[in-house]
Amino acid sequence: MTDLGVRYVSLAPQEDGACTIPSPVRLLGLAANRDAQSSITFPQSPLIDCPLAERLADWLREAVSPLFRARLGSSLKAVATGVGYECRTRNRDPGAKLSAHGLGLALDISAFELSDRQRLRIGLTQDPAAEDALDVVRRSACGWFTTVLGPGSPDALHENHLHLDLQQHGSGAGYRICQ
């Protein structure tokens, strides 16, 4: 992953009952572009599985950062997240299936910070240009992740963050949930 410009700490595989992460990494940051002139940080240092870290790095570098530069005139500087790995069921419902968080295959993003100090919080009313940019970011995620949930999805628990995951759903690898 270092060849992708990702800064991380590798950890030993994690296992807690049904919850397992074969190749866990604590995500610290990544080069914002191929020449590594600037970086994107993860202040919460989420723990996620390596395949999710790679996909996230590509999406942020190839889609999100250029989108913010084009629409808002500022580069992506930091991504505020949840913890990533958490051994729990979906929506913490005792009868539900294991969450993708329990496999290190999910990450929640609550805000993006730009180089001009704008903080774009997911689900909070902002100026129309910021709202439009966040909507395009959410829609772009649908091409990179198998599940994208956020404001406006039928699940009200995702009104203040974007849930991104790589867990396979449905009958095949091409099945996507994008709400």
Score class of each variant (00 low, 15 high):
83 V>D: 14
60 L>A: 02
34 R>Y: 08
29 G>Y: 04
132 D>R: 09
77 K>H: 12
122 I>H: 05
32 A>K: 03
28 L>S: 11
96 A>T: 10
118 Q>F: 00
101 H>K: 08
125 T>C: 01
92 R>M: 06
112 F>T: 08
49 D>V: 00
31 A>R: 08
70 A>I: 02
125 T>N: 13
104 G>E: 10
114 L>I: 07
57 A>E: 02
45 S>Q: 15
37 Q>R: 14
81 T>P: 10
137 V>A: 12
129 A>W: 01
31 A>I: 01
85 Y>D: 09
82 G>K: 07
97 K>A: 15
103 L>E: 11
40 I>W: 04
70 A>L: 11
134 L>E: 04
50 C>L: 14
92 R>Y: 11
80 A>V: 07
76 L>G: 03
90 R>T: 13
81 T>V: 09
125 T>S: 12
91 N>A: 12
68 F>I: 05
123 G>M: 02
123 G>Q: 03
65 S>R: 09
31 A>P: 07
78 A>L: 00
115 S>L: 09
119 R>Q: 14
103 L>N: 00
120 L>A: 09
63 A>D: 15
46 P>E: 10
83 V>Q: 15
129 A>T: 04
59 W>F: 15
90 R>H: 09
102 G>A: 15
79 V>R: 03
63 A>E: 15
120 L>C: 11
103 L>G: 04
111 A>L: 05
39 S>C: 01
126 Q>D: 14
35 D>S: 12
75 S>C: 00
96 A>Q: 09
90 R>F: 03
25 V>C: 04
102 G>L: 01
97 K>M: 07
124 L>H: 06
69 R>N: 08
45 S>A: 13
107 L>K: 03
40 I>S: 02
45 S>K: 12
33 N>C: 05
83 V>F: 05
50 C>M: 14
102 G>P: 01
132 D>L: 10
96 A>S: 15
51 P>C: 09
30 L>I: 13
42 F>S: 07
59 W>A: 02
61 R>T: 13
81 T>D: 11
44 Q>F: 02
80 A>Y: 13
81 T>H: 11
133 A>H: 02
108 D>G: 13
45 S>F: 04
68 F>A: 06
39 S>I: 08
58 D>S: 15
100 A>Y: 02
48 I>L: 11
88 R>E: 11
88 R>T: 13
117 R>A: 12
54 E>N: 12
83 V>I: 13
135 D>K: 04
26 R>V: 14
121 R>T: 11
65 S>W: 00
91 N>R: 15
99 S>R: 05
94 P>L: 07
56 L>A: 03
107 L>Y: 01
119 R>G: 03
